[in-house]
Design a protein around this nucleic acid. Structure first.
Length: 693
DNA sequence: CTGGGCATCT
DNA sequence: AGATGCC
């Protein structure tokens, strides 16, 4: 593809505007041209980083035991080497090699079992948080990769960098010799490369990990270019080489987003190479994949990827699984479930959120398709069981969950007949934060579960870290010191970093353009929300309030209730009548974005309080339905304990036994409000994934 | 002798 | 619930 730079850029712009989603361009693209249109075509583009840690599991193990650095090391899961260090790679080892093959190639190979992901998971989240402390738009991809949208950070630096003659590009430049490239022609990529270098250095100095970075205008290209120099190096992709890097891929399967199945279907159409797909008529492609998927595939082949960097919150599900040669007795099933649940419940408890749904997955043995065909069944978790998880009554919780799991198991497997399982998985999902609101239409019916354990969900207030220049140091008692200080004694991390990371999460599901508005004043017209949303121009309390909120009521609440109402999960669950820009100082201010309860009744205190007072707010729960012969009025007069018991029994009948008699016509459970409740509730507790233990 | 997670879409 | 995809 001999496209000149300008042509290539034009091409991509036209592709974008002519099809794909008609969504507006990225915030920077929308706000950029007015500020930077003289700086060339690249100004309208995002700057995206992709980070990929080098042989991540092996690095973690080498940190835990430095002696391993000098030997060929493989991380073993069952019979597979999932990754290995570079000493081992020099001897021909690769990822996902069987232990047999690996030992053959490298008899002195040292193996460490890596089936327990705890340490990797913890370190993984430390990396994500460290990145977030510099820039809130971080999206995780697996445990060892992160995307970062640094567009706004770049733009900010650009305005502060008067001297465009001193630009340089850090690290490699794809298919160029750095000296041949005039960095000032690509000021934003050049700045991006410096930010990438700084972030890599931060990860190295504070966490002791090395990794690669790719700098490009979208996630696809950033990921592809990231891998061109390994390990522990970084590469910037210039616009005139977009076509080159796509063309360099040896098969369509190398395109992120094209998996085994998609590659097979493409091959059935005669498409094997990138160019095959680029030239294939969209209509024909759409016949096979449907319009949207076809468009996406073609775009990918062209190196076009408009998908945003979507900040990853706390995980939406926690699961634990084990594979094995054979389980074929009910007793073994029960023991395996118990073992899996014990560890999962512990993790869930540390998370702090309360799971509403439980799922059991199995894989049956079959000579054909051995690693395929998983089956699962799921059901709601009775509230009193969920509370045992949250409250730390783990043993009891496990006992009851095992019962649930066995019921689900028997829905899939007739244990009177012979069976042969090779995998079991237990999963908690529909995770509900303490303080998360369950909203009916228009009103917010909230009930707070939990009550104590203040350390679990710290409410953070802070300001965002400036990306380079000035700093307003403000120290809060925060958890990041322990977290980062494990093996590197001299490092210090200010509380603001961690807090800004947390603050970023508050806005994680917000429109991207509104997320970054930190304390740097120079960013006047750069922030599109400041212009478009009049709510954002004012900082007074009342402007932040939803219209049905009464400030007087709020003021008279106990302080901890106020805190609950201000918690991010609760705030985020509000239908966003006002989208706040993420002002870090606003985070400090208790009056920052106040949530409201339905003001027809008093502001709802915590569920524990309600329960103690004997007023369980049952009818407000959307997935709760009375059997037809129960009078709600009568029910409400029952003692809370009895209410709870009845409720969970009904729920269990409906979901597990699935007897049609107890299933009332009308709405099925768990269908609405998924988004509001689920998404909004999760951000509150991501922090726990960043804390030690 | 092909892990153990996670997410999204349908 | 399952399929598919990412690591």
């Amino acid at each position: 593809m001999g496209n000149s730079e300008a042509e290539m850029e034009e091409d991509e712009t036209e592709w974008r505007s002519s099809f794909v989603d008609s969504a507006p361009l990225s915030p920077a693209a929308a706000s950029g041209p007015s500020l930077y249109k003289t700086s060339g075509p690249t100004s309208a583009h995002r700057v995206i980083l992709h980070f990929d840690l080098d042989c991540f599991y092996a690095q973690v193990e080498m940190i835990r035991n430095p002696a391993l650095r000098e030997v060929p090391l493989g991380i073993q899961q069952k019979y597979i080497i999932v990754t290995c260090n570079y000493v081992a790679r020099e001897q021909g080892l690769t990822k996902l090699m069987s232990v047999t093959d690996a030992k053959e190639k490298c008899p002195q190979l040292v193996l460490v079992k890596g089936e327990d992901l705890t340490h990797y998971r913890e370190m993984s989240y430390k990396v994500t948080e460290l990145l977030m402390s510099h820039c809130p738009l971080v999206e995780r991809l697996g445990f060892d990769e992160n995307f970062i949208d640094i567009t706004e950070m770049v733009d900010r630096r650009l305005t502060q960098t008067p001297d465009s003659d001193n630009f340089s590009v850090k690290g490699h430049i794809y298919s160029h010799v750095s000296a041949d490239v005039k960095a000032s022609d690509y000021p934003r990529l050049a700045i991006g490369s410096h930010i990438a270098a700084e972030l890599r250095e931060a990860i190295h100095s504070k966490l002791g990990l090395t990794g690669c970075a790719g700098i490009a205008p979208n996630k696809l290209l950033a990921k592809l270019v990231c891998g061109t120099f390994k390990p522990n190096q970084q590469t910037t992709l210039l616009p005139q080489n977009h076509g080159d890097i796509m063309g360099s891929l040896s098969s369509l399967r190398k395109v992120p987003g094209v998996g085994h199945q998609t590659a097979k279907r493409l091959q059935a159409l005669g498409l094997v190479s990138i160019q095959n797909l680029q030239l294939f008529p969209l209509n024909d492609l759409a016949r096979e994949f449907g319009g949207p998927s076809a468009q996406r595939l073609k775009n990918l082949a062209m190196g076009v990827d408009d998908s945003p960097v979507t900040p990853t919150g706390a995980p939406q599900s926690l699961s634990d699984e084990d594979s094995f040669k054979k389980i074929s007795s009910a007793k073994d099933v029960l023991e395996k479930i118990q073992q899996l649940l014990s560890s999962l419940v512990e993790r869930m408890n540390k998370d702090g959120r309360q799971p509403q749904t439980f799922r059991l997955t199995i894989r049956r043995y079959s000579a054909t398709n051995k690693w395929f065909s998983r089956e699962s069944r799921q059901c709601p978790i009775p509230n009193h069981v969920g509370q045992k998880i949250t409250s730390g009554d783990s043993d009891d919780a496990v006992v009851q969950l095992v019962q649930l799991a066995m019921k689900l198991f028997h829905k899939m497997v007739d244990s009177r007949a012979a069976f042969h399982l090779t995998l079991m998985n237990v999963c908690f999902s529909n995770l509900q934060s303490r303080g998360a609101a369950v909203s009916g239409k228009g009103s917010i019916t909230s009930f707070f579960t939990h009550g104590t354990s203040p350390g679990k969900a710290p409410i953070c207030s802070s300001q965002s870290q400036n990306d380079s220049s000035q700093s307003h140091r403000r120290h809060h008692q925060f958890s990041m010191h322990n977290m980062v200080a494990q093996h590197n004694p001299q490092m210090t991390v200010t509380a603001e970093s961690a807090c800004s990371a947390e603050a970023a999460l508050h806005g994680s599901r917000r429109k991207q353009s509104s997320v970054v508005a930190d304390e740097d004043p120079p960013l006047q017209s750069g922030c599109s929300t400041a212009r478009t949303n009049p709510e954002e121009t004012g900082n007074t309390v009342t402007r932040r309030l939803p219209s049905n909120f009464d400030p007087d009521v709020f003021e008279h609440l106990p302080q901890d209730i106020q805190k609950e109402l201000l918690s991010p999960a609760y705030v985020n669950s509000i239908p966003s009548t006002s989208i706040s820009s993420l002002s870090p100082t606003a985070e400090l201010d208790p009056s920052y974005r106040v949530a409201t309860a339905n003001h027809h009744r008093p502001v709802v205190p915590s569920a524990s309080l309600l329960a103690e007072e004997g007023r369980l707010s049952l009818p407000r729960s959307p997935d709760c339905k009375f059997p037809g012969n129960v009078d709600p009025e009568v029910f409400s007069e029952l003692p809370p304990d009895v209410q709870k018991e009845l409720m969970s029994e009904w729920k269990q009948q409906k979901s597990v036994l699935k007897t049609s008699s107890s299933m009332k016509p009308g709405r099925s459970l768990m269908t609405k409000d998924r988004k509001a409740a689920g998404k909004g509730g999760q951000t509150n507790s991501l922090l726990k994934y960043f804390k030690p233990s």
